[in-house]
């Protein structure tokens, strides 16, 4: 988030707007500390490696001046079929999707993380930074060349990559709406039950799963590195936690 501010400052005069949406049922309490300057200075360097930011970008991070929206019911995840964070969608001047939801430059770094020391091997850090920089370069290319950018996908390809929702997705989203209602009214047990129903209906949704694990007020705003999170990651087997964005040109 605060590193995207660097990209924003570079590209906004060329017509790029960034809109950040936080899928956070606890709302402002969960997200505000992560956006405020005082907390940015205290962000652990480990995060830079994990997210693939190189030292230059990390050093320049600043509180976002682009809109940072709060989505307590995970509405945008439902509308776009987003299953994990961070994912991004590229939308052109006419409001058309030119890149559907995909990992926003992150690769499967959690798999390389030492779960006790929270350290990453150097090779993994280098690989992560390379993927991140390739993604940022693609974004720059699109901002510069628009529809002629090789990274702006044709409508047919966008359609092919989009995950249209099924009955399970809309039911899960309805449970999340109820879960958020009970959360807002202090009925934590009921809230959690509905998030867990959503996870059962959509086991591929890391957003629902991660939210459900961190719903307890004492966990609000914390990054989950607990045993339940790692057990869920391990249960993926060979499946990626962050499938890398497919930046290959499409003809």
């Amino acid at each position: 988030m605060p590193v995207w501010q660097v990209i924003y400052e570079e590209l906004r005069d060329q017509g790029l707007e960034i809109i950040a949406v936080a899928f956070d049922t606890a709302g402002r309490a969960a997200v505000e500390p992560k956006i405020r300057a005082t907390d940015i200075a205290e962000r652990p360097a480990m995060l830079a490696g994990l997210m693939g930011w190189d030292d230059t970008l990390w050093a320049r991070q600043a509180p976002p001046t682009y809109p940072c929206l709060i989505d307590e019911t995970h509405l945008v995840a439902e509308l776009y079929g987003m299953t994990n964070v961070p994912q991004a969608v590229w939308i052109d001047e006419q409001g058309r999707i030119v890149r559907p939801p995909e990992s926003a430059g992150t690769i499967d770094m959690v798999r390389h993380l030492n779960r006790e020391t929270l350290e990453l091997p150097d090779a993994a850090i280098a690989e992560g930074a390379e993927a991140r920089n390739a993604y940022i370069a693609a974004l720059r290319d699109w901002v510069r060349h628009g529809v002629d950018s090789r990274y702006a996908l044709p409508a047919a390809e966008v359609k092919r990559r989009l995950r249209g929702p099924g009955e399970a997705e809309v039911r899960a989203a309805t449970h999340v709406k109820l879960g958020r209602h009970f959360y807002a009214n202090g009925a934590l047990v009921q809230a959690k039950r509905h998030f867990d129903e959503a996870v059962t209906l959509c086991p591929d949704s890391w957003n629902y799963r991660r939210q459900s694990m961190m719903l307890d007020p004492e966990n609000v705003g914390q990054l989950n590195a607990g045993p339940d999170f790692w057990a869920a990651v391990d249960a993926l087997g060979d499946e990626p936690y962050y499938p890398p964005a497919d930046l290959a040109p499409v003809r």
């Binding site: 790029l16 969960a30 987003m82 964070v85 969608v89 590229w90 939308i91 901002v143 991660r210 914390q222």
Partner: peptide, 20 residues
């Protein structure tokens, strides 16, 4: 309140994240 449609005419990088 912000609507996505307020930003028509610009390229939008819609970025999702969570505190967890």
């Amino acid at each position: 309140l912000h609507s996505l449609s307020d930003y028509r005419g610009k390229k939008v990088f819609l970025y999702s994240w969570g505190s967890y």
